[in-house]
């Protein structure tokens, strides 16, 4: 095997392990640097608390039950919004990707509304859906809807004629053809769109919780900022970041299972 060739088989897991170790080491180094800088007193500790202080704060948040409550509130909005937006986006993408008349009617309208950053729709969502959960879920769903729709649509438009032809000569027509060929061809597009949507969903959630919520991780961050509780604010940032990271990893693992035939899933 030449030194530059792709690792394979047994060597694969070893190189995976190495990559993982390097990644962990770089995170640890950054944490150490932060800790040292925090303790050095170059910046006042109430503006720049070291990670040990943030960890202490995180622990006390966990002990009081606030952390769990905030996490549950955020996760609920996030997942409901994501599910709603993903379902509608997929449906819409298939519709405009497969049916030309539907694309003619809907696409100009959608492209126009899509151009508006979803953050500025937040006040409108609150007017329409009230200050409760509905407006927050709606804004997350809207943020998710657009990338999923676009990505599904472009996958639907790119279905290869050869596959359709092969399926037709093998006896698939109509609904069956759609189910057996178009859908599996679109699935990678749906997954790619969803992966993008996972981050826009977090973004939308943060925006929604910062304007008129009474719980949630982003609410906690913003509230602590107003109360000048920097350590608590940082603890919130860490918790939200960890959650988003975990969800992304989970998502990658799930998409490998949904698309086993892909070389690199999502």
């Amino acid at each position: 095997m030449s030194p530059r060739s792709e690792p394979s088989g047994r060597n694969r897991s070893r190189s995976d392990l190495r990559d993982w170790a390097v990644g962990a080491a770089s995170v640890a180094a950054a944490l150490c640097a932060w800790e040292l800088l925090g303790r050095s007193g170059v910046y006042p500790p109430h503006l720049f608390p070291p990670p040990s202080a943030v960890a202490r704060e995180l622990k006390s948040l966990a002990a009081s039950g606030d952390l769990l409550r905030d996490t549950v509130a955020s996760a609920r909005r996030w997942s409901l919004g994501l599910a709603l937006g993903a379902a509608l986006g997929t449906l819409m993408g298939l519709l405009t990707g497969v049916l030309l008349p539907a694309r003619r009617v809907v696409s100009p309208l959608m492209n126009l509304t899509r151009a508006i950053p979803f953050i500025v729709l937040l006040p409108l969502a609150m007017l329409w859906f009230g200050l409760g959960e509905a407006s927050k879920i709606a804004i997350v769903a809207w943020g998710v809807f657009c990338p999923v729709w676009l990505s599904t649509e472009s996958a639907a438009l790119a279905v290869e004629k050869e596959y359709v032809w092969a399926a037709r000569t093998l006896g698939a027509e109509g609904w069956r053809l759609w189910r057996e060929v178009h859908w599996p061809c679109c699935l990678p597009g749906v997954v790619t769109g969803l992966r993008l949507a996972v981050s826009t969903a977090t973004f939308a959630l943060a925006a929604a919780e910062m304007s008129g919520a009474f719980d949630g991780l982003a609410y906690r961050i913003f509230y602590s900022y107003q109360m000048f509780q920097t350590e608590r604010m940082m603890a919130g940032v860490v918790a939200l970041g960890a959650l988003a990271f975990a969800v992304d990893r989970l998502f990658v693992a799930a998409s490998r299972r949904v698309l086993p035939w892909r070389e690199e899933a999502a």
Binding site: E162, Y163, W165, A166, A167, V181, P184, C185, L187, L259, W261
Partner: peptide, 10 residues
């Protein structure tokens, strides 16, 4: 088919 056209998802 000339280019096999196997379904990659199957």
């Amino acid at each position: 088919f000339q280019k096999h056209a196997l379904f990659p998802w199957e």
